[in-house]
Amino acid sequence: MAHSAQRTGGEEMNRSTDFWILVGTLIAFTVINTLFFAIGSFKINWDSFGIVIAVGLTLAMYSFLYKDNPAFKIAENLYVGVALGYTVIITWYNALKPDIYDPLFVPIFTKATEPEYLVIVPMILGIFMLMRISARLSWLSRWSFAFVVGLGSGLTIPNYIHTFILKQIEPSMRPLFYGGESIYVSVNGILVLVGVVTVLLYFFFSIEHKGPIGVASKIGIYFLMVSFGASFGYTVMGRMSLLIGRMIFLLRDWLGVLH
């Protein structure tokens, strides 16, 4: 009982500390930005205001590295809302307006050109897709899904054969010597061929991985591990470059420390 009370007291103290850290950070952020506006580092315009908002969001997001907190949650939820609004608006301007509103509704009302009545078909299929939210009429959305899935499947067959199978097999089976290239190129060519074949063997489960097949699939695993390691390293470096980008933004665009 005493132990539990002690723990609750500790949690309350932590909560209180976090609260004051949050308030302190907000006050510091407000003071710094007010100072920047006061001394003229920031002009009073939308771009400067935008930088302040972007800095606020960046710091709120990074505050998660300390622990989950209200500032992070607010920034996260705001980001989700903005991303949703952005997607809907871009869909309107890039897909629905040029492909439905402009060719169908504008000519109907202005009578300037002949309306493209054919777009009524995908429009109806699109409306059918929205029926997904109705329990009684959700079956209509199957027609739209059938269209999209059928189209996608039909396109997948020839495109995958051409792009991902033939185009990938061709460079794996190049002659070792064209004439003029170094020995390293030929060795690399053999390694790529060995890698492709052994990786495919590793994923071929119709035969037991024993004896020579077992050895080959083991080599395939080695190739896969090197590839996973390389992909991991590459992804980490990609995220690092984003981090560097954010740090440059904070130090150059906001604080003006970097030039």
Partner: peptide
């Protein structure tokens, strides 16, 4: 360019055959 490419190509061939 070599082991990573070989493994990715092997995976891609398998995925493509599965997708088809």
């Amino acid at each position: 360019g070599v082991p990573n490419l070989a493994a990715k190509r092997g995976i891609l061939l398998g995925v493509s055959l599965g997708a088809i």
